[in-house]
Amino acid sequence: MTLPLAAYRHDHDHDGHDHDHDHDARGGRLVQIEQDIMAKNQRYADANRRYFAAHGIFVVNLMSSPGAGKTTLLVRTVEALRDRVPVAVIEGDQQTGLDAARIAATGVPAFQINTGKACHLDAHAIGHALDHLPALDGGILFIENVGNLVCPAGFDLGEAHKVVILSITEGEDKPLKYPDMFHAADLMILNKTDLLPYIEFDPEAAVSYARQVNPQIEIQAVSGLHGDGLDSFLAWLEAGRLAM
Score class of each variant (00 low, 15 high):
Glu172Phe: 13
Ile90Met: 10
His120Thr: 03
Arg49Trp: 01
Glu34Gly: 12
Asn145Pro: 13
Val60Gln: 10
Gly16Ile: 02
Glu204Ile: 01
Glu79Ala: 09
Met181Cys: 02
Met38Val: 05
Leu141Gly: 11
Pro175Glu: 02
Thr193Ile: 15
Met244Lys: 15
Gln94Met: 15
Ile113Gln: 03
Gly138Phe: 03
Phe111Lys: 15
Pro175Trp: 04
Asp131Asn: 10
Ala125Met: 13
Val78His: 00
Thr106Glu: 06
Gly92Asp: 13
Leu62Gly: 10
Asn145Ala: 04
Ala135Tyr: 02
Val75Leu: 00
Asp180Gly: 09
Ile113Pro: 01
Arg102Ile: 03
Phe58Ser: 04
Gly139Ala: 13
Leu133Met: 13
Tyr209Glu: 03
Glu170Asn: 02
Gly16Ser: 00
Gly240Tyr: 04
Ala53Ser: 14
Gly27Trp: 01
Ala104Asp: 12
Arg102Tyr: 14
Pro152Ala: 06
Ala243Phe: 10
Ile140Ser: 02
Gly158Cys: 10
Ser208Tyr: 06
Ala104Thr: 13
Asn114Val: 10
Ala235Ile: 10
Ile126Gly: 08
Ala125Ser: 15
Asn114Phe: 12
Gly229Pro: 05
Ile217Thr: 00
His19Ala: 05
Ile103Thr: 11
Lys40His: 03
Ile189Tyr: 01
Leu225Val: 11
Glu200Ala: 15
Ala235Thr: 09
Pro203Val: 11
Asn41Ala: 02
Asp131Thr: 12
Ala6Asn: 07
Arg43Lys: 11
Thr77Gly: 12
Asp24Ala: 14
Pro152Val: 06
Gly69Tyr: 05
Glu91Ile: 14
Arg241Cys: 01
Pro179Lys: 05
Ala54Asp: 08
Gly147Cys: 00
Pro179Glu: 07
Leu5Glu: 08
Leu225Tyr: 04
Leu130Val: 03
Gly97Gln: 14
Leu196Glu: 03
Leu166Ile: 09
Gly171Leu: 05
Phe201Ala: 06
Leu176Glu: 00
Ala101Val: 09
Ile113Tyr: 05
Pro197Val: 07
Ala110Gln: 08
Arg50Cys: 12
Gly158Lys: 10
Gly56Trp: 09
Asp156Arg: 15
Val207Trp: 00
Gly229Tyr: 07
Ala125Pro: 13
Ile143Trp: 14
Pro179Trp: 07
Leu242Asp: 15
Asp228Tyr: 12
Leu196Cys: 03
Ala118Asp: 11
Leu74Phe: 03
Ala101Ile: 10
Gln212Gly: 01
Leu136His: 07
Tyr209Gln: 08
Asp22Pro: 06
Ser167Asp: 11
Ala105Val: 04
Val75Asp: 08
Arg84Ser: 15
Glu218Asn: 06
Asp180Val: 10
Asp93Gln: 06
Val108Glu: 08
Arg241Asn: 12
Asp13Leu: 06
Pro86Cys: 08
Leu130Pro: 04
